[in-house]
Amino acid sequence: MRLLTHNMLANNAKGVTKGFPLGLEVTAVETKEAEFNPDFLKKMVPKLEWGAFCEAAAVIGVTGFPTAVTPDLFEDEAFLKKFHNALLEVHVEEGVLICPESGRRFAINKGIPNMLLNEDEC
């Protein structure tokens, strides 16, 4: 599971009104090289919840992102490389996603988050 996925997942259980962003606990991480594509990164910025991304990046050990992305940063190679790495190259192999409201835990095993809800949560 990459941070891109984390940024798009929420706890949709019945009765939960604020199931995003999910907390992240990490026990195993792998880094896999991905093709660096600045145009794609620029397209993704407005689709992300930036605050949630920065918090998750800190969990995987990438800190120091600005609080907002200004247009000049798209010319900043160092920023783009760091953003690319945290968003697309770091894979959480084992860990847990935690609902900010209910504390419900969703396991991440072998790189795949399990968002299945129990019958009483649907």
């Binding site: 599971m1 891109l4 996925t5 997942l9 929420a10 795949i112 988050p113 968002m115």
Partner: peptide, 12 residues
């Protein structure tokens, strides 16, 4: 990005 879940699996 792969997730286990019913239909949209938390992506909504």
């Amino acid at each position: 990005e792969v997730a286990i879940g019913d239909l949209f699996a938390g992506l909504q």
